[in-house]
Design a protein around this nucleic acid. Structure first.
Lengths: 211, 211, 211, 211
DNA sequence: AATGAATGAGGATTCATTCAT
DNA sequence: TATGAATGAATCCTCATTCAT
């Protein structure tokens, strides 16, 4: 129930640097252009200190991002765990996106990882693959959680392939996030209506009778 | 009918540079790390020449990318225009993705633009907004085309909000592309089956009776 | 006869850098502490230019040193070539040292190469070994020249092992150079007398009757 | 008779650091590139501790080197003191070089001091000049010892200038050391033969009748 | 118009030294 | 006294951009 309790405390300086990276990104910085000096300055520490904790810039920034993702998705997963139905969980996730979208990316950052070929993203992917951070909690873990609930309540048919279900949820969520960024020139539809449509669509799609 | 005919011929040097950028990206280069010298060398021209045609690196690369996107989506749109039904078009699009996914991004590159905060992406967004390239043909134009056909044939209900339809198609396509990259650890499902499921899902979802 | 004529002209900027390195060393700089910025500044060129010609600092400085050595020893060898006897040549070499000793090292720099383990010396050794500079003319080539003359005139007995002769000449020359630096607290002996003693010693030592 | 007895015991930490420096050099480290952190780590003490005993890195390393030289040459001198003739002593010295040459430099390090312009060498020279370490025992002291014996036994003529004798011995020893490093491309001669030739040469050269 | 040699601002990284504990 | 975390000056190297030819 108290998932955060286990949260091992980060060394003070590392925490300051992670926070600095987060803030820089929220300020709209390009992940690949962040300077070590910017981070340490914002963290209120000396430039050399960064290298006491990380072997290089990529290691520093990718660690910060991974930590941040872990936190975001971890909290999301914890809250999803409390949900009683798949429908509740998807509604919750969409609302979360609406809340967070102002603070830049969040979910879209995840997409970016799979799209970008920059050194930092590469380092992140590497780290995830090597399971260096074994308890890393990413978007997929959240979706896995949601699907489990849905299967348990019977909202999600056992006949649909897992991969399809995951992809369907992930793409809807990404689509919604893109929609929220408002970079369209289509006649917009009401945000609430959009959320509702997405929920209904998923519900109907995953239900037993459909096939 | 002959959409490409209008295609104004690019100056030889520019074409060489555009081609070089495309090749570099296909070779896996990170858009934000491409060097001017790499481009001009691959293009077989002098470094200074790049600055005869573009005011700076961002202008050069973003123009090349935009040109490329314009080409890809233009061709796609042209072929969609020949289609007789929405279903045919979505099947065609998914197949195209399968074909192209090997040559790095394509569709995912588009997503990247909306996710990345780097100077090149910023320049691209700027350009699209300022309509500097008025006949730019992006993913949305393709979807618009498809939706038009669908509405005409009655496959797409007029009662659904346009924005929702667009988002739904876009997110499914993105989702499929991500699925194809294979960066999952879910039990995979057959590619053909996945394509079929996506088509059926969209078809059912957009049909009149559904609501 | 005209050995210098072949001397391929160095690119202007490289020459300037080589000259700058030489000057810095004559000013007493430590080879391993010379900064790229010092060199380029003294050479009156931009810092980046150094990297147009050399891949890194070590490459730059070691090339400059090698060039310098090649020049010094090349000239020495050319002059030795004109000598009629071993005695004349050794007298000439010792005089040269007296003349040059004021301008830091010269001969002693050669010794330093075999003693130092720094990155620049390593690069030099590497280069000499790889024969990258095939016409490199070092101390040993000069001595070889001298010994050849000595054997021709009969001043140097054929019964003595080559290695011993080389070592004997080299060590005497080094010893004389060390003596000239004056870092002794022995009762000094006259420089002229010292030169004379060395010559006589070598002459007697290498002569036939001795053994 | 018991020269080592006087040896004042070094503070434990200093001894550890001196030992660390020696080991690093034996491992092939470049004197000018040794890091304080390497020394203290190898010595098993805290980095700050180095600065409790030495005002800076140069002071630390040059002291360590000087101590080491003092030890090496001190032992050598003590053993030379027991010798009955100059010939015995020079044979002994050459054998010592053969033994030690594997552990990097030794004698050649001394040469390096007079060749190098780096901060550490400068500090060493300074120290020797200022007699900060009054009982410093260097190569020259060993040679002085040898010459004294030789003059006593009559092996070394009184008519030869002291400086010449010193230089002659020193240069032969250096030459032999260089020969042992094997960085020649001359046809090698047998090590034993080389030693013998050097001994005979010195013996004959310094003998009364010669002049 | 085309070139590419030259430039130097900019940023990552190292490591001697300090100082609070 | 001993420590080692923190520091930031120092320096190498990159690469977009300029400009003389």
């Amino acid at each position: 129930m108290e998932l955060q309790l286990v949260e091992k405390k980060l060394p003070e300086k590392i925490e300051a640097m992670y926070k600095a990276v987060q803030e820089l990104i929220e300020e709209g910085a390009d992940v690949n252009r962040i300077k070590v000096s910017e981070i340490t300055q914002k963290a209120g520490i000396g430039k050399g200190t960064a290298y006491e904790y990380f072997s290089n810039k990529e290691e520093l920034i990718s660690s910060a991002l991974l930590y941040q993702m872990n936190l975001i998705y971890g909290q999301l997963e914890a809250q999803i765990a409390k949900m009683k139905s798949f429908e509740e969980s998807i509604r919750f996730v969409l609302s979360s996106i609406v809340e967070k979208i102002g603070q830049r990316d969040c979910f879209l950052r995840y997409v970016h990882i799979f799209t970008d070929n920059g050194p930092i993203s590469e380092t992140m992917k590497q780290k995830i693959k090597e399971q260096k951070e074994p308890d890393t909690c990413l978007a997929l873990d959240c979706i896995r959680q949601m699907v489990q609930i849905g299967k348990h309540t019977g909202e999600i048919s056992a006949r649909l392939p897992e991969a399809y279900i995951y992809m369907e949820v992930l793409s809807k969520v990404i689509g919604f996030a893109i929609y929220l960024t408002g970079e369209w020139d289509v006649e917009e539809c009401d945000r609430e209506e959009m959320q509702e449509l997405i929920c209904m669509s998923l519900k109907r799609e995953f239900s037993e009778k459909k096939l």
